[in-house]
Amino acid sequence: MYTQGLAEPPARAGAPEPVVEDAEQLRRFEARIDAEEKIEPKDWMPAAYRRTLIRQISQHAHSEIVGMLPEGNWIGRAPSLQRKLILIAKVQDEGGHGAYLYSAAETLGVSRAELIDQLLAGTAKYSSIFNYPTRSWADIGAIGWLVDGAAIMNQIPLCRCSYGPYARAMTRVCKEESFHQRQGYDIMLKLANGTPAQKRMAQDALDRWWWPSLMMFGPPDTDSQHTALSVRWKIKRFTNDELRQKFIDFTVPQARYLGLEVPDPELRWDEQGRCHRFGEIDWSEFHAVLKGDGPCNRERMLARRDAHEAGRWVREAALAHAAKHRRAAAMA
């Protein structure tokens, strides 16, 4: 689960110097992109293309891994054995998605260890959505339905991304993500049709997850300067606002079916434009969460760092074990 909202490079001093590319190589590269050819790891590519992909794919991978935390929070408290099995399978999928994506990033000449170090040092970003807490069981439903729903909206066009390994990883992810969204909606259906208290719980979850889900698509197009190059190089196929609009148009009728109310008093159907008009998004909240001041940023990073440190002896022991067996085999 992830969206594209973070793919913009940080505007800070010390950013890599722009590289002057060989005009002929650049021309040939762009001709291949125009012809819908896929770029593969050892092919020539502009430094900015490589950099953008490493940043986007690694942010995506980090998001999958950090995304395991809010949902993992409910594994021990799932309301039935079947719900628990389903949630374990879903969280395991998120770990798998992280693994596919780190694998795709590594084809660009960066090591997974380096990327994980960046996450743990706090210099890499991950999707802002995972810095919100999961307070009730209904949040697990809302995450599957809305957060994974928003992620799918973004990820389906990424299956046609110009970079082969990323596109292939996304194809695999999308197949699995559909299960995530449906199991989430299934939880919401059960609650919305349950006791008044359960229905209130479902409404409360929608109230809290609606706006953060819309923010997942990233800043409005007017503030997103790097979209143009990403679109030209077919890393990105649609802009943030296009995808956000599509998500709203898909999701509002689903909320209505649940008998729940979308927490936006300005939301209305525009017959002429054939789309939903919606209220202003609070971008100051988005930027605060991205900067580290969301409700759970510190808790998430602490959990990742603790897990990394606690696992260190296992990683070292496995290598020692493998080395011992290699020596034994060499002597036999």
Partner: peptide, 23 residues
């Protein structure tokens, strides 16, 4: 299908099972 990190070949097979054949 992709790659995995592993301490040795036997672990690579196990990780590949978990990462690439869950369905």
């Amino acid at each position: 299908v992709g790659s995995v990190h592993a301490a040795d070949a036997a672990m690579a097979i196990e990780h590949a099972r978990d990462v690439y054949t869950r369905r």
